[in-house]
Each structure stands twice: as C-alpha cells, then as structure tokens.
C-alpha cells in the first residue's frame, strides 16, 4: 500500500499540474471559444480534489495553506472592482475596455478587462468548491 501511495501521489502531482494548466487554458479561451472562468474554476478545483484524494486534507492544507473563504471574497471583490472601474471614468457600471495588441510569442492578443472579471469568477468558483469540500471533509 505504501508504495502504491507513493506512486499515486507522484502521479497526482504531475496530473495536478497538467489539469491546472488545462484549466488556465480553458479560462483564457473563454472569450473566443468555449470555456471561461467558470469552467476553468471548476476544473482547477477538481485538480485540487485530486490532490486531496491522493494525499489527505491536512497535507493538502499544508501544501496550499489557503483560507478558501478569503479566495471567494477576493474573487468577488475583483469581479465587482472590474465592473466598477468604469464608474470612475463616468461610464456606466460594467463598461468593459479592450484593445488589440501585438505581443511577441502570442501574436495578436486582446487585453480585455472582461478577463479580469472572469478571473474573479474563476477565484470564486475555486474558493467555493474547495470550501465545500474542505468543510465536509473536516466534518467526517
């Protein structure tokens, strides 16, 4: 069993990063193709869940010492903040700004405040999912 666990844990670490990057990809893809902050967040959360299964709650908590409720709050603040920026420049709430840039490596890229908003969504989803899993896990 011990050996198995080691293998499992090793694999889990690798798979975690693969899933995580996949999630990041989905997140950025959202504006043009299917994906987005919400799905990205859920996929990230499932990556963390994988770690939880491979190790256990306490270890993961030591690995990622995060208060997920704060993640939720920060996500909300980010989303609200992004939406509120426009208020300060005399534009209706939630007016987004974007422009197209040519960056080396990426080529034509758009920098979009909507992406910041989506990041907020992402954080909330990760935070909430992990809060649920952690509290239920703690209870058992």
């Amino acid at each position: 069993m011990k050996v198995n666990n080691v293998i499992l844990q090793f694999t889990a670490k690798i798979v975690f990063f693969i899933i995580f990057f996949f999630a990041v990809h989905i997140f950025f893809a959202g504006h043009y193709t299917p994906g987005g902050g919400f799905v990205g967040g859920l996929v990230t959360a499932s990556a963390i869940v994988l770690l939880v299964i491979a190790f256990d709650l306490n270890t993961v908590h030591k690995l990622l010492p995060i208060n997920y409720i704060y993640v939720v709050a920060i996500g909300l603040i980010l989303a609200l903040g992004t939406a509120a920026i426009s208020m300060f420049v005399e534009q209706p709430f939630f007016t987004h700004f974007f422009d197209y840039f040519y960056l080396p490596l990426f080529g034509k890229t758009s920098l979009h405040t909507a992406a910041l908003f989506d990041l907020g969504v992402y954080l909330v989803v990760v935070g909430v999912t992990m809060t649920i899993i952690q509290t239920i896990g703690d209870d058992e």
Binding site: I69, V72, A73, L76, I77, L80, A84, F93
Partner: peptide, 11 residues
C-alpha cells in the same frame, strides 16, 4: 453594490 461590497469584506 455598497451592501454587496460590505458583505465581501465582512467575509
């Protein structure tokens, strides 16, 4: 949004 914002910071 003010109550909303305060709800967030109250978390």
């Amino acid at each position: 949004i003010i109550p909303f914002f305060f709800a967030m910071i109250l978390m």
